[in-house]
Amino acid sequence: MKHRVIVLGAGYTGMMATHGIARRTKAAEITVVNPTGVFNERLRQHQAAVGQDLGAHRIPDLVPAGVDFVEGRAARIDAADRRVVLDDGRDLTYDYLVYAIGSTTPRVEHAFTIDDPAFAEALRNNAEGVLAVCGAGLTGIEAAAEAAEAYPRLRVHLLNRDEPGKMMGSKARAYLMNALDRLGVEVRTGVTVTRVLPGAVELDGGVRIAADVALWTTGVVHARLAAEAGLTVDDAGRVIVDDALRSVSHPEVFAIGDAAAIRQAYGVIHGTCQSGIPAGAHTAESIARILRGKDPRPFRFGYIHQPVSLGRKDAVIQFTNPDDTPSRWYLKGRAAIAYKEAVSSSPLKFYRSKTAIPSAMTKRTGGRRNRLDSATPAALVVVS
């Protein structure tokens, strides 16, 4: 009999796990569950936000042959009976569960989030107005730059406590700041947005900035499904996993991506596609090994880069050490654009390919080699 595997979530991590399991073993009956049938290109949401057509990618067209796709939202996980109950009452059983439901940005009254389709319409309707971007992480930076380039008469404020690109090296950060200045983005640091009002955002101290549109990009919310199912989670609601990415309380459950608290020697991995996709590939390999009667191997991951789009005509890439601290290497301009586009678009191409998923790649830094679990189609070698 085949073992029943449910992949809960069809984002980048869930899709990579699905493809990996299907290609590594014939002993699994795989079902992918997702609230919608359309694949969300999370890496390119800032482009969709300004009305760029990214095309519609249907999940049933992206999963491997023989994999079942169920469109539905999980309402409950019954970990004792190994069942996933959907909000319409359907009931799915599993032998192994891949928990890959990701995270969301908090919903704030009178503000949009980057994945809200209504945000693009609001920008079009206020193309000569004021946009306040609350939060200057990578999402905030890319959204501000994209909006400023797409709507030259739009006044864009980027509001944050820290300087944009604080995680980068000084040269890459300086390039980023110059690009924002060139695009006319007004960066305001040392401030916290305390609330969003109709037509304005309010900062700490009571100062208000007029804004026709507000975009909220800061903070992370994790689903409560795992905690409610009795899985061991951290304070943020992420599933605590062992070194093979299995739940420490329920080893038949693998957790990956934003939904998992994955600890490495340098600390807990922060949720990005860069770490989530390798985790999905590693989980696929682990499940295949278990079904062959073997023990799973430990997951080892090191960061490679911090890629940032600055509109369609510019970008900056900060290469990093495995612990995500900046190295001395970075790309800018056309080279960075080409690199960023390849990174952002590669998963969809890879899902459609028939190539076996590589389980590892090597980054060479400072004369030493670090083995990095990865699912990026082409191996990247950075030599310092």
Rank of each mutant, 00 (worst) to 15 (best):
H3N: 11
R4V: 00
V7F: 01
A10K: 01
Y12I: 05
A17K: 02
A27F: 02
A28T: 01
E41R: 12
Q47C: 03
Q52S: 09
A65W: 00
V70Y: 03
G72L: 03
R76T: 11
I77F: 01
R83M: 10
D87R: 11
R90T: 07
S103F: 02
T105Q: 11
R107S: 14
T113H: 07
T113C: 11
P117Y: 01
A120W: 01
R124M: 11
N126I: 09
N126T: 14
G129A: 10
V130Y: 10
A136P: 10
G140V: 06
I141K: 12
A143D: 07
A144M: 14
E146T: 10
A147W: 14
P152Y: 06
P152W: 06
M168I: 03
G169Y: 05
N178S: 14
L183S: 09
E186C: 11
T194K: 13
R195T: 13
A200Q: 14
L203A: 12
G205W: 07
R208S: 14
V213W: 12
L215M: 11
T217H: 11
A223D: 15
R224L: 08
L225K: 12
A226R: 12
A227P: 06
E228I: 04
L231M: 15
D234F: 02
R238G: 09
V239P: 02
V241P: 10
A244W: 00
A244S: 12
S249F: 05
P251W: 07
A255V: 05
R263N: 05
Q264W: 02
Q264T: 15
G267H: 06
G271E: 07
S275I: 05
S275Q: 10
P278R: 05
A281W: 00
T283N: 06
T283R: 04
G293Q: 06
K294G: 06
K294P: 00
I304F: 10
P307C: 08
A315G: 07
F319L: 04
T320S: 12
P322N: 08
T325H: 04
Y330F: 15
Y330I: 01
L331H: 03
G333Y: 02
R334F: 02
A336N: 03
Y339T: 02
K340F: 02
K340C: 07
L348W: 02
Y351I: 04
T362W: 10
G366E: 13
R371Q: 11
R371F: 07
D373A: 15
S374Q: 11
T376F: 14
A378R: 14
L380I: 15
V381S: 15
V382S: 09
